[in-house]
């Protein structure tokens, strides 16, 4: 029965023949269970990931329901990680789902992330991504950066020691940024960016992603652009200026 579920994705030549085994033996941590994070977690579990950790300290609000498809009206007021865990287990009851009801900060990050094969970014601010980036480099665990607003967003694989990290280029490393409610975000852009993040994650797990290009995707124009970002030797997180 298990095998039957995955036949259609196993037939994809990019996955065949070894990809499915890699997916099923990978441990994934998703930080942030909002629009991108909850969609990423769902895709990962549907594809066959058997070990997933979800991290968030927020509760579900009415304003989440237009794009955070994991949650329903009856979930308003409940913790995102609690509802997400139940929903993920409904998709596959044999998955180990660990829920962490905490804000990821530098003092707890390495403990929460250390068992991951890959870390997925479902956060919504610069501070949290900086914490993720530093922990990923220190632990030598790859992470997939994803961010979205309006009709567009970015995805980038960050493989410590191999590709540039988030601090190798001028991505802000502190602050909240502008919230989705103020800036606006199209639900379909959230889905597109989270889907792209899942594809790039698969490639990393299968050792098929080595460049770590920054991918820009706009679902409205529509438009896709890829920017090469070489490592910065003097990077404050992964280079010689590391503190």
């Amino acid at each position: 029965m298990e095998m039957e579920r995955y036949l259609s994705q196993m037939a994809v030549k990019e996955i065949f023949p070894s990809g499915q085994k890699i997916i099923e033996s990978s441990s994934v941590v998703v930080v942030g269970m909002g629009g991108t994070g909850s969609a990423i977690a769902e895709v990962m579990v549907r594809m066959g990931v058997k070990k997933i950790t979800i991290v968030d300290y927020d509760t579900i609000e009415n304003s989440n329901l237009n794009r955070q498809t994991m949650y329903k009206e009856s979930d308003i007021g409940l913790k995102k990680v609690d509802v997400a865990k139940i929903e993920l287990l409904k998709i596959n009851n044999y998955v180990s789902v660990e829920s962490v009801d905490q804000k990821l900060i530098s003092s707890n990050a390495e403990g929460i992330l250390s068992k991951a094969d890959i870390i997925m970014d479902g956060t919504d601010n610069y501070d949290a991504r900086h914490v993720l980036n530093v922990a990923s480099v220190n632990l030598n665990i790859p992470w997939i950066f994803s961010a979205v607003e309006g009709t567009y967003g970015y995805v980038k694989a960050i493989l410590p020691g191999k590709t540039s990290c988030l601090s190798c280029f001028e991505y802000p490393d502190e602050g909240e940024g502008i919230s989705c409610t103020v800036q606006g975000v199209l639900p379909s852009a959230v889905r597109a960016i989270s889907s792209l993040a899942c594809s790039i994650a698969l490639k990393v797990l299968m050792d098929k992603e080595t460049y770590g290009d920054l991918i820009y995707l706009d679902v409205w124009k529509p438009m896709l652009e890829v920017m090469q970002i070489p490592r910065n030797k003097e990077c404050r997180v992964c280079g010689t200026k590391k503190d």
């Binding site: 994070g37 956060t123 961010a147 979205v148 802000p172 502008i178 820009y216 652009e225």
Partner: peptide, 26 residues
């Protein structure tokens, strides 16, 4: 020309410079 650039790089005739905003949401 498709590769991340810094402010100190000098541009040449025919170059393409692309400008992207930072994005924080998720």
């Amino acid at each position: 020309n498709g590769k991340y650039g810094n402010e100190e790089q000098t541009i040449s005739d025919g170059d393409t410079v692309s400008i992207f905003p930072p994005v924080s949401g998720g």
